[in-house]
Amino acid sequence: MILHAGIGNQIIYLNINAILYLISGIVALSVSFVSYKYSKIIEESLLNYISFGFTLLGLGLVIQGSLMILLSFNIARFSENIRAIYISSVMYLILQVIAYITISIGYSKKAYWNSGASLISVIFTKKREYFLLGAYIFDASQIVIIFLLGFIVFTGYLVHMKNKNIFSLLVLIAFSLMLISHIVYLFSSLMFSTDYYFIANIIQFLGFLSLLLFLIRSGHIGGTKEK
């Protein structure tokens, strides 16, 4: 009886996380689509970086969300699926790192560069266990992501201070929440706490909600529009 209740809770936990991932993924893919569409109209390299970065981010989130849904249907055979879970989770982390590198390169190119010269190169290795994923890889990736998002938030802050409009504020809030969520992800890994992991997921989701609000207010979803 207690065992059944435990499995039931795990399924609910997986499903809630899956929904948060899937909605965030759809928002990220929407941002990517709009950027791609506009990059065809306006020659602006930052749009290509944003489009590519959010595509990777969206794909990673959708893959992770789908995996959690599959797991919840097949929770009894959890151990047999470890290899698939491990590979897809590492893939998700790599996609996230590349996505944030891409967005930060785009931002830095726009804000600081006049020409070439790569700013960031990232190497990460090792393994341990966290939520069926090598924790060293997870921790190292989180540190890299926190560093990249810190840079993106700082640039976003400069952009907002210069423009002072609701649109740049919503983007700044979104990236700030993503940064906080990754700090909490790292904390959850160090504390071996699934509660903090769940909180991190919610904070990340709120970040994507802010992006969704940005799309709505700029008139890309629904009918409202405000300048």
């Binding site: 749009l47 804000a111 400069l158 210069k162 409009n165 740049s168 983007v171 207010r217 300048k227």
Partner: peptide, 16 residues
């Protein structure tokens, strides 16, 4: 005009 304003709003979000 509506479409151009939407583009402008989106770009302003990223400081463009």
């Amino acid at each position: 005009v509506k479409e151009l304003k939407k583009i402008e709003s989106f770009l302003r979000g990223f400081g463009l």
